[in-house]
Design a protein around this nucleic acid. Sequence first.
DNA 1: TCTGATGATTGGGC
DNA 2: GCCCAATCATCAGA
Length: 460
Amino acid sequence: MDDQTRMLTGLTGLAGLAQADVGDPDSVRKQQSLGQPQQDIGDILQQIMAITDESLDEAQARCWPEESPAHWGGSDDPTEGGRAGGGMAGGGLPLNFQHRKHALNCHRMKPALFSVLCEIKEKTVLSIRGVQEEDPPDPQIMRLDNMLLAEGVSGPEKGGGSAAAAAAAAAAGGSPTDSSIEHSDYRAKLAQIRQIYHSELEKYEQACSEFTNHVMNLLREQSRTRPISPKEIERMVAIIHRKFSSIQMQLKQSTCEAVMILRSRFLDARRKRRNFNKQATEVLNEYFYSHLSNPYPSEEAKEELAKKCAITVSQVSNWFGNKRIRYKKNIGKFQEEANLYAVKTAVDAANVSAQASQANSPATPNSGSPGSYSLSHTGDAYLSLRSLNGEGLNIAPSLQPQVDTLHRATHLTGGYEELSGSGLYTPHRLDANSWQDTTTPPPVTSPPGPPGSVHSDTSN
DNA sequence: TCTGATGATTGGGC
DNA sequence: GCCCAATCATCAGA
């Protein structure tokens, strides 16, 4: 009530100022001629404050005494009407609420008072709110907007999406056909997300617009009976927009999440893992087992292997890395495989050698350009074969057991099954100082040639 | 569904 | 930058 009293005092003062401040003697005369303006203002304010203080029941009881439930019970307390009537200045106004309202609305002082009330309201409550509500632009929304723009979800359709799809395809490392399928798949899914995003955004905007209009109409309607300034309406609109923008942020957030999931699905190569085809694995294994003493292909060898296997150089590196570790971890398990590839390589080399002999042109293992390798012509197995064929090359002592094994396998037993069954091939005995021996530094740290050089095998 | 195989990734060492 | 070792995640066969 203190506030109300202050407002009342302020209002009367302001109202007085509003009229007297102009210093127009005519207006003062006008006021005087119109009766008692100050008293009028006071009366109106009194009415307003009385209305404000009343509870709904009181208002009903006072305005509709004959209809109020209390009076339905037969009460005819004269104070009811007397109280209401007592509040009426001049005593000439009807007791009926609508009449009072109408009288207030039609009062000649109403517009002036109304604007003053609006002004006070704005200066007190709204100014405080205004300070609190003026937030700086949310950096999170900016981030989300930027991301959606970069991903091609918001803004023009071309751009980030395709780039991301291309990146996904490149990362997948699959065949071109696979890549194009992934690409289109990614784009289709991104387009789907984009469509949902825009559809939802449109819905939100429409809802926001409808709700704003609705509230504005309500406020305009109410502004006839209570002080609502245009600024207040603007502020309310801003609040609504802020609320809706927070919903929009949620939409943007979930869209970003969807895009991230999509990206991770397409960009995460682990999810894209495909076993290499049989031929590629054979090529890699052939190289590995034929260079068992130093299975570290040079960059050039890796490139050639990658080309042969239709995979990337890094995939070749991965494969050799995995192979070395897994071989070393469980040599016994890989023994059969080692035997198989040793024999296979030996047979291949034998065929080449035979062809070379027939053509009266001796095979030259190192006839290739430096840095290149030939699966049949280089490596331990080749040396073994040369030995088996009695060509008497210099063989590293570490390879002798393998050579012997192959010799027996190809010339004495003539079959892989007996070879593997007898356990004659023991790659772990190839070299006491070889990479398999974890107690000694692997040859990669101290090879005869450059680390990983394919020729280190032949020279060894 | 389970399990072994396998390609890829990660973190540390050199 | 390469390698090793551990680990993850997926594939593929039983």
